[in-house]
Structure formats: structure tokens, C-alpha cells
Nucleic acid binder design. Sequence first.
DNA 1: CTGGGATATT
DNA 2: AATATCC
Length: 717
Amino acid sequence: MDSGEEEEEEPGWGVMETGVVGGAVEDSQRVILHFDLDCFYAQVEMIRNPALRSKPLGVQQKYIIVTCNYVARERSVTKLMGVKEALEKCPDLVLVKGEDLTHYRDISYKVTELLMSFCPLVERLGFDENFVDVSEMVETRMKDTSISDLSFVGHVYGHEASSVEVGDHSRLAVGSAIAAELREALRSRLGLTSCAGVATSKLLAKLVSGAFKPNQQTTLLPQSSAELMNSLSGPCKVPGIGYRTVEKLKVLGVVSVRDLQLFPLRDLIREFGEVNGRRIQNLACGVDLSPVTPAGPPQSLSDEDSFKKISTVREVQSKVTELLNSLCERMCKDGRLPQTVRLTLRRASAPSRWFSRESRQCPIPKHTAQKIITGCGEAVPQLLSIVMKLFHKLVNAGDPFHLTLLNVCFSNLQTKNSGRNAISSFFTHTTTSAAHTHVQETGTELGVCEESSSITQANPACGTQNTESTKELLKCQTSTASSSASSASPSSASSSFFQNALLQSIRSKPSTSPRQPVSKHSGPKTTSSGRSSTLETQKSPKLPPHVDPDVFQALPEHIQKELMASFQTGDALPEDSIENPSPVAAPARAERPEQQTQAHINQKQTSQLSQISLNQSHQIEHSNINVAQSQNHNLCDSSSTESAISLPDVPPNVDPLVFSQLPSDMQNELLAEWKQRKPTLKISSTKPATKQSASRDHRPAARASQNNSLLKYFKPN
DNA sequence: CTGGGATATT
DNA sequence: AATATCC
């Protein structure tokens, strides 16, 4: 069925040449790597006990096997299989408890750190995955590598690896070489095997990394992205589309990725909102402009436990105390002050078992937070008091209740930093880990929280029925806390964290490593090439009339981009005259997304639309070309091709799927024109973190100034 | 009773 | 402050 129709370049594309940009703009195409450690927990356990290597091994949490090594997999044990079933299939399965994540966490950060030592743009996804934007590294290497020397390392999706000529894809080829080097580094330095995906976006890199499973890597050529996307068994396989979204999509009749690609954007937007509707359709089309956002220390620390049943307040207290003890210990080592505590629980009586978590959170009084990181034993009883109040907000203890999970989370981590000489203190760091002797005072009293009497220690929002005055107090306290929270220490010291971690890891590294274009970026480089402030995104972009410019500008830049890229001339118009083929009914043959194409082509070509829905792929392609040409036209000489009512120099209303299938030259050209933003280190602005921060910064406060003790996340030893 | 996290959005 | 998503 799925013949690889998209392999050959249509002669028709030649029309697009525009000779304007031979290959000059290659600069704008990213090379993104995705690394995925093989059965991570199992690997860690095998490192801790090498004798396990030859045996079928399962890592057990509660009564399930969360992951297992490949020996076990050969015996048909799978991830997330119940212990009982696993033992039936493989009686000699060796089980190791994996509920304590400490070791996994430690090694996980070592992996990130190692990757960062090659290239600073690393984003973590869970404990066992990392994205790396190696675009600059690739650029550098291209300079002293002749294309004829290039070839792909590892697999090439949809091709017989060795027979692929590098041709247009030299950057990806270089990326595949870098991926191989990094994987080798992970293996030789940390003893971990991994898979890697090489592509032009996070989405694609992640999806392709699993194409060949244990310990291999795969590169995706842009021309194969549609094939990849359409190979997915359903929308839930698209990262970024989760359970909730899938449920809503089903109601709409959207059950396959293809359905989603073809579904009328208008209807998606109605269901999911402007930004999200577009986002998920873009994703389904294999389009993802989101940047690789560098990892930092965790933004929250939490601890949880699940169980068959807890139904008395006593049990809750004792479980919460348990959680608080371990959490406080971790928090203490971290050194930052948590400003918020949250309790989450799951009730046994939840329809779907899934997602019935409920939570309540409140501020932590500062004196209590201090005690946590001081290692003062009094912290736990005080926190227990607070948490139990949260509990009573969630559960009426008068009625019977039945809980199956409790989670306590510290968040809003404040770096109380000396800022000044963060760098020098960095070198003196002594992984303090503090011999805080924990006095296990399981305070059973709930009221003990306050002891002194300043306003600010009045109990925070925990009371159930609070008076207005309490609320006032609360506000007061909150603002007090946050204003005092703003540790100065803007830029200079702030660059520190990653750089420092970086320097350290590099220092300790044998120089045998391939090439390492280590950081040279803290300065102008990043800022110059990357970030032209969001605000002056070119002369204020021409937005469709129904879009509030302020709202638009408040969005993250890549979202703005994706919006701009997909604003369709027809969109703003109430033309309901276009009807969409029922997605389910739509025979899925044509390779292009008719629906969007329809909108693009809009008014002028509306007459073609009905034909398109009849699978006249020739016409579709023809139409696409027209669209692209007009785009191009617009870009080049600002002449509006069609209906003048639309935006003269609005960036292209380009269909994402169509775009993704354009020859890479053309993609380059277009992207360059659209001001493709390059990923940048988001070194925080010098804003004193006043609570306003109008625009959503993706990585808020933690980025600003880092306490040197945070280095342990990257330098556990 | 599929775990124990973590992050981002509203 | 609560929810959705990811691993």
C-alpha cells in the first residue's frame, strides 16, 4: 500500500528553482540529534552488578516490570508487564527493585553532562532521553570536510544505508557522524549503549531514533518525513499528542495520523484553540520548529509512592512523613529553597484509573524552607503540618476515602545565591551533601507550624475556610516572598552554570575525544545569530485581523513562527463554503493535505477544491506549486499575488506537510526568508524576576543565577 | 495497582 | 493553582 511515492523529486519542482539561492542559505537548516538510552534502568543495574549482564533482568517497581534488558526481551518479557506474567514467561527472570530512583537520576545527569561537553545545546526529556542541537557543530565541520568524504553513519530511514548518496544531505551526514561519536562517548565513558536519531527537528529526530532498536542510529532525510509520520499507528504516537488530545480527536472522528493531517484546521482550532490546534496538526505533518532548550537543574523535586490502599489520616501522615524525609534530604543537597509545596493524590475510585490525580499546593513559609536546606529536623514536622492541611482540602476525612497514591513536590526553587563570585565559588565546591542528622520528629500535631509571630509566618493558604483577612495576609506574604526572592545576579554570573559544568567535565576528559567545539558561545555568537528580540520580529508582522498582536507577541518565538508559517489567507475568512471531506471517509491516497491546501489556495482556486477531494493528485501538486510560487514571489518582491486583502509580506501560508516534502534547497530558502530562528541558550534576561514577567519564559527563574551547589547535578562525584 | 518523576500551559 | 504531557 504505502509505496514510497515520495522518493523521487517531481520534475515539477524544478519550477521552483528561483536560482536565487543555490545552497547559500544552508545555514538555516538545523541538525538535531535525539539520544535514547537502551532500557535505561536495566543498564544502570547491570553496571552496578555486571553479573546481571548475562541474565534476563527485569527492573521492578511495585508489581510491574518497568523495563528489562534484552536478554529478558528475547524471552518475551516486555516493558510494563506485570511481574506475575513476566515470571510465567521467564521463570528465571532476575528482578531488581527500581523504586528508588537515586542511581538512575545520577547517571541520567551524567549523560546530559557528557553530551553538553560536546555541544551545549542539550535538552533532557525524562531520565533517558536527550536532544542535542548540533547545527553549529555541523557548520564548523563542513568547513574542513570535503563532501566527497562524507557518508552516513548508521541507518538511513527508508533506504539501504550504504547506497544513499550524500548529495543534498551533507549536513545530516555530518550529524550522523557526530551522533556516532557521542554514542561512542556514552559507551566508553559511562558504559551505556544508546540509540540516536538524526533529523532536522526534535519531533523527527525522536521519532526516527527508534527505527532500529538496540544500540543503533538512524538518520531521517527530509524527503522521508511523510513516510515516517504515516507509519505511526495513531496520533498518540506523535510526541506532543497525549491521552487527552487523542480522546478529543476520536470524538471528531480522527483516528489516524493521516486523518489529523487532513482534518479541517478550522475545526481543530475550535476544539483545541488557535495555537494548539495548529500545533498538533503541524506535528502530525512532521513539522516542528520548537527549539532545543538547554537543560538546567530540575525545576522541582518530588517523591511519591503508590499502594493498594490508604484510608486513614494516620496512614496518610505516616506516608507523607516518609516522603517528606527523603524529599528534604534531596532538597538539602540541592541547596535551593523551595517556595511551594504540593500534595497530589489519586483516589481508588476513579473511572479510568488514569488521570485522576488531584493536587493542592501552597507557599512554604520561608523560615521553614530555611530549615529544610539547613538540614534542621524541625522542617519535616512543619511541612507535615502544611501538607496535612492540603490533604484536608482534598479529602473530607469525615467520609471514607481510599487513596492509591500520594506525591509531595517542592517547586518554585529559589536560588539564594551570593551571585557575586559564583565562578570562584564554583571551583571550591565541596559537594556538601551535609551530614544533616535527621531528627525524625514525626510531628503529629498539626498546629505547630508557627512559633514566632511575624506576619509572614502566618499559615499560608492552607486553611479550609479562610476569611478575607487571611487571604490578605496571604497575598502579603506571597509578594513579600517573591520580592525578596529576586536574587540579583543577572547576566555575568548567570552564564556560569552550564559553562562551568562544561569546563569541569571537559577538564577531566581524556583528550582523545573527537572534536569538541566546546563553548565559545556565551557571548555574541549566540545572540547575534540567534535571537533578534521577539518584539521586533521584523517590522511588526502582519497578522490576520482576528489575531491580537499583543497576545501573539507574548507567545514563544517558535510558536509565533509556526503560527506565521501556517496562517492561511483563507483562515481569517468565514468562508464555510469550503467543506471538508469527512476525514474518515477520505480515501487516503493523495499524499498532500487537501484541507490545508484548500485553504491556501483559497478564493481563487476554490473551484478546484472539490476535485482535489476526489484525489486528483496532479491537481493537488499543481496547486501546491502555485502556492509556493506565490509565496516566493511575495518574499522576493513583495508583490501580492492574489487577493490584496491579505498580507503583502506575510510569511508564507505554507502547508506544513507540503513544506516538509519540498526539496531541501527550497526549504532552506524559504526558511531563511522566514527568519528561522536559531536555537539559543536562554540565558535569562537581567530581569529581577519580579512576578510580572509578561511573556512566558520557558525556563524561568532557575536559569538566572545558579547556586554553585547545583553543580552536583552534573558533577555527582 | 503500569512507576516515579519532570515540565509546560492555563 | 490545577491540568496535560512526556519518559
